[in-house]
């Protein structure tokens, strides 16, 4: 009896989420996709179908050059964030006994601080009269302020890595916490020291969290345009800035939309390639 009524009821229950998805995801995305095939005439977007926007991206090496540069930088940032976030999660999960909860909160508290405030903070640290330079100057180690710290790709990498660390830390920590402790004891008992326990047991079992953290960091870094704009200087133009400028002062929404879709396609591809590692629990490493 329940069977007969469950189908329409399930349909009813699905309505809110469907409406939500339609309004906030499908419609805007569909509209953006649509105008990526339009063109600009004067200051008007004309609904005339063209492949010109995509053709421009694939023919002018400047655009693909910036994309490649952005992807490499995002990759480096994601790896740096893992190098910083994974050990942090490992220490907190396995070494800290007291105050674990408090330390966890401390590790994710940067997420509560305004994005812009954190960017400005890094400018104060890296700037010519910033924390690092004035410290080094007053110690007499340098005469002139170090100029490679700010307004270049180094500054972007440092700041975005910092932004991404909590996004790596949280999923990695969660997956480390899920590893039963007696499995690690069994590993030690069966002849593996800490290093070999790490590579044979802990790392494979935390891979889902690691992959999730990597995806987060990579996609955040690839799409960001505020940090390059604020801290990147002249060499700091990234793919995100390119898109932003098309919607902003260039007023070429169709081209901006096309660039957005190229970025989206890349992100979805990466997500698709890596999510099979991220989603399955445990079993993926065996043949």
């Amino acid at each position: 009896m329940g069977e007969r009524f469950s189908a329409p009821r399930a349909l009813l229950r699905g309505i809110p989420i469907t409406v939500w998805m339609l309004c906030l995801v499908a419609v805007p995305l569909g509209y953006t996709f649509l105008i990526s095939f339009f063109q600009v005439e004067g200051l008007q977007i004309a609904a005339k179908f063209t492949l010109k926007n995509y053709r421009l991206f694939f023919t002018d090496p400047m655009y693909s050059g910036i994309l490649l540069k952005s992807m490499l930088l995002a990759l480096a940032i994601a790896l740096l964030a893992i190098l910083a976030g994974y050990p942090l999660a490992y220490m907190l999960s396995f070494r800290v006994r007291r105050g674990k909860q408090a330390l966890f909160m401390l590790s994710i508290i940067p997420l509560w601080v305004s994005y812009l405030v954190r960017i400005i903070a890094w400018r104060t640290i890296l700037g010519n009269k910033g924390v690092i330079n004035s410290a080094l100057t007053s110690l007499g180690l340098i005469q002139e302020p170090l100029s490679f710290l700010l307004y270049n790709r180094f500054a972007i990498a440092v700041t975005l890595t910092y932004i991404c660390i909590p996004f790596v830390f949280i999923p990695v920590y969660t997956s480390l916490e899920k590893i039963p402790r007696n499995i690690m004891e069994a590993s030690s008992d069966l002849g593996a020291g800490e290093l070999r326990t790490f590579f044979n047991v802990v790392l494979p079992l935390s891979l889902p969290g690691l992959v999730t953290g990597f995806i987060f960091a990579f996609i955040i870094a690839l799409g960001d345009y505020i940090i390059p704009q604020q801290l990147g200087g002249t060499q700091g133009i990234m793919f995100g800035n390119l898109i932003w400028s098309q919607f902003g002062f260039a007023f070429n929404w169709p081209f901006g939309a096309a660039l957005s879709f190229i970025l989206l396609a890349i992100s979805v591809t990466i997500l698709g390639l890596t999510s099979r590692f991220g989603s399955t629990e445990g079993g993926f490493l065996s043949e």
Partner: peptide, 18 residues
Amino acid sequence: PYRRNVHTVFQDYALFPH
């Protein structure tokens, strides 16, 4: 433990799930 020539059989087996 990893240098002792004894092994433990744990109550909940502690097999490596992966």
